[in-house]
Amino acid sequence: MTSKTMLGTGFGVALFAALAGTAFADDTPKLTELSPNGADACFGRVYEAAHLKAHPHQKVARIFFYYGPDPVSHPNEESSPASDTSYNSFMATTVRGAQAPEWVGGWCNKESGDGTTGAIHCSMDCDRTMASLKVDDKGRLIVFDVQPDLYLDAGAEDELGAAEYDKQVLGSEDDGFRLDPMPAATCKAEFARIDPIDPALGPPLRERLKPDQAFCYGRDYDAAHLGSHPGQVTQSIRVFRGPIELASFANGDVASWPDGADVTISVTTRQKSGKVTQTYFCQGEGDQWRCAASAKMSDFSCDIAQKEIFLRRGANGTMMLANPNSSLPIVDLCSKVAEGDTRSDDKVFRLTPMPQSACAP
């Protein structure tokens, strides 16, 4: 499970939001062996040192299995899940010496054609197997048929080489795990160790900034900052939605917010005395707004829809703006200078809320 980098295709992508404490809402047959009442189910085990000493070929020191909605992902900027919500099962294991778990998600169903009888098999994307399951007479979950290369891509052995492959795969005794039933909150706490949420970030931008709400974020850089960042062209920057932007969304689909939202960016550079502005057309993507330059304000000769910036919530009410591909109006967006990655300090900006008057044209 990987995420995009801040300055590659954006700030990073989360999956869909965890629906804490809820039962399943889809129409797939329920695994009553795991969850007799249809609620989320958790099983886990933390192995003692004595057990691990007696099983030197077992790498897994902690293992948790969760039957329920996604327990990993953060609330994101999309109004509805972008990922496959049919995943109903998740497994996290922590090997000896590791600080955080690795995890996989997939589908667990009965092996019969109608999904109501037979053994429980858990599959993942690309026709791979996560594990098989059964519940013993004491209610413990037996997890078996665990593949050693569970967390590796297909063809990893050839790519990594034998020595590195053996180091990364699970051990020869990492199978036949016997897990105890636990409260659902225990599994959620375990999965939260994978990618902890920073409470300072607060709610997503789509919740913080409403469709009919004007806003203004910006920053003015002083001489000391600019002196220590000689590659930064931007002297002042504003990101805002005002009357024009609000009017353009007046008939928009509020349920899909922020898809279709216009934002305007105004920049003053060291070389220019006046402001240069550009409108961007945004959509939610993971935990960011992905905003493409719009031709509404100017008649461009190039396809400026390929010029993008990314907005993301910052800590303590701030907004982060990423400019990975020379997409800010600090140069002509169609010029040769604007092609390729930004080669200066004008890549990431931390913006603070400002009065609407600070973003007035």
Rank of each mutant, 00 (worst) to 15 (best):
Y47G: 02
S123L: 07
D136F: 03
L34Y: 04
D180Q: 13
D198F: 04
Q147W: 07
T28I: 12
R290E: 15
T269D: 05
P243F: 10
G105E: 03
P69Q: 11
K188A: 13
N88W: 01
H51R: 15
T268Y: 01
V276G: 06
L209K: 02
R350I: 12
Q235F: 10
W107P: 08
K275D: 12
D27S: 13
S327W: 00
C302T: 07
N316G: 05
N76Y: 01
I142P: 01
G218F: 01
P329K: 02
P69S: 12
T352F: 09
R206Y: 05
E164S: 14
K275W: 09
T93V: 15
F11I: 09
D125G: 09
P71N: 07
A338S: 04
D145E: 12
Q271Y: 14
Q283I: 03
L170T: 03
M124Y: 05
E102I: 12
Y217G: 00
D136K: 00
P81I: 06
Q288W: 04
T264N: 03
A18T: 15
D149P: 06
S35R: 00
V146Q: 01
G202F: 00
D70N: 11
N109Y: 08
N325E: 10
P56C: 01
D259C: 05
R290N: 09
R178G: 03
S298C: 13
T186H: 08
P56T: 00
I197H: 09
S298H: 11
Q99P: 08
G260T: 09
A23V: 06
R343M: 11
S3M: 11
C359I: 10
D332E: 10
R313A: 15
G286N: 02
R313K: 12
A247S: 14
P204G: 08
D114Q: 09
P75M: 12
H74T: 08
A223V: 13
I194Y: 07
N76P: 03
K347P: 00
F65M: 15
L152P: 08
C334I: 05
P204W: 02
G171N: 04
G202Q: 04
F300Q: 06
C108T: 13
E207R: 07
C291D: 01
P355C: 06
A23F: 08
F240T: 10
Q288A: 05
D174R: 03
G314K: 00
F177K: 02
A50K: 11
H225L: 10
P258T: 09
D145R: 15
F11V: 09
E111Q: 14
A292N: 05
D27W: 12
A39F: 12
E308L: 14
Y280K: 14
D145Y: 11
Y151H: 10
A322I: 06
D26V: 06
G176W: 06
N325L: 12
Q306N: 10
G284L: 03
G44H: 03
A14K: 08
G274E: 12
P69Y: 03
K296N: 13
V233Y: 02
S3G: 05
L328N: 06
R290C: 06
I309L: 08
A223S: 14
Q283E: 14
T32A: 13
T116A: 09
R62C: 00
H74Q: 14
R238K: 07
L201A: 10
F24V: 14
R343I: 11
L34F: 01
A119R: 15
M1Q: 15
D332F: 00
G139E: 08
S301C: 10
W103R: 02
I197S: 09
G139P: 13
L150H: 03
P230W: 05
F16N: 15
A224Q: 13
S266T: 12
D259T: 10
T32N: 14
